[in-house]
């Protein structure tokens, strides 16, 4: 408790002792009483039983489903997921059957976007490349939420040395640029020789968890000081159970928002790493690899690079828009007035 540098009581004590009798005006003041019909008296603190009960999530859903931003991004994301799961539904062309004689040719019947430098169908490669991007984004997000969320929640809730150690570790990770760090990790023999989707996911998780740990820590610190946490402790709930049952559920909103936005960012990171040649191996079809191999024909046939880049941008933008819409729904205060 801070000390008051200035006194609260300023006047001499005696001044408080006079009897106060109220003021009487010299003017004539009319005594007006409203008619009871115009101002009906209602029950004190009446319970409104007519409305449908709504949890916080249900309320968020209600405001969410009316937002155009949410509808557009949700449709796009569902489409991308459908493409990733069932690519065969969207194209019958085999993306790996490439004929060099078709190289860099423009759109043709059955090949709406034309052909790459290697003579592969661009449209089919985009469709089949979605899976790698979505898998990397999804699994990185899941691992980041589990690791970052758990560490952040424990550090924020228990504080003390655990918190101090975690804060320093996250500082170290924040100081390392993602791309530079990822290049170094991907060059480690264990990673370099086994390049796969999983090596990319592990690398991105290593650099992604500190951000989520910080967000979770902040949300948990805010929630742990609430009266309902103290009330549960007074009921005899153990400290850890209070964390699991009350503190964590009340800290979920910012985690969900950040996780949604990060999913898009991880997809970009995967494309960046693949572009630089340290991400997915060339044997795996991905947008990043396609963009990288389209570099050589950029000047003459920019369309080869443009299409996978467009697919990547739209997907990432949808996740970021979804995150924004969810943030608005969960925390109406942050909405710009």
């Amino acid at each position: 408790m801070p000390e008051n540098p200035t006194p609260e009581i300023i006047e001499p004590e005696g001044a408080a002792q006079r009897i106060r009798s109220g003021k009487v005006s010299t003017r004539k003041i009319e005594h007006y009483v409203a008619r009871l019909e115009d101002t009906p008296l209602q029950d004190v603190d009446k319970v409104d039983e007519s409305a449908v009960p709504l949890s916080m999530w249900a309320q968020a859903w209600r405001s969410l489903r009316k937002q155009p931003l949410f509808i557009i991004s949700a449709i796009l994301i569902l489409l991308v997921i459908a493409v990733a799961v069932f690519p065969q539904l969207f194209t019958h062309t085999d993306p790996t059957s490439c004929t060099l004689s078709n190289a860099r040719k423009g759109p043709a019947a059955g090949h709406p976007l034309g052909f790459t430098f290697q003579g592969c169908d661009i449209y089919a490669r985009i469709i089949f490349g979605a899976r790698a991007s979505v898998l990397v984004g999804l699994f990185t997000t899941i691992f980041v939420v589990i690791i970052g969320g758990a560490l952040g929640a424990l550090a924020g809730y228990y504080g003390g040395w655990l918190d101090a150690v975690l804060a320093r570790i996250t500082d170290i990770f924040f100081a390392l640029p993602l791309i530079l760090g990822a290049i170094i990790i991907m060059q480690l023999p264990a990673f370099r020789d086994n390049k796969s989707i999983w090596t990319v996911i592990i690398t991105l998780t290593i650099f992604g968890w500190p951000q989520l740990a910080r967000i979770t820590r902040g949300a948990v610190i805010e929630a742990k000081n609430s009266d309902y946490v103290m009330a549960s402790r007074a009921l005899g709930l153990s400290k850890f159970k209070t964390l699991v049952k009350h503190v964590v559920p009340n800290s979920l909103a910012p985690i969900i928002v950040i996780a949604t936005i990060s999913l898009g960012i991880y997809i970009v990171a995967e494309a960046t790493l693949s572009f630089l040649g340290v991400g997915l191996p060339p044997s795996i079809m991905s947008w990043g690899n396609d963009i990288a191999s389209a570099q050589i024909s950029l000047r003459n046939n920019p369309a080869i690079l443009m299409w996978p880049a467009l697919a990547l941008s739209v997907t990432v933008l949808s996740f970021i828009m979804l995150g924004d819409a969810v943030r608005d729904a969960l925390d109406p205060k942050s909405r710009k007035g």
Partner: peptide, 12 residues
């Protein structure tokens, strides 16, 4: 009360 003036007059 509920957005309306229900009574006004000398305080005491």
């Amino acid at each position: 009360y509920k957005g309306q003036v229900v009574e006004s007059g000398p305080a005491l």
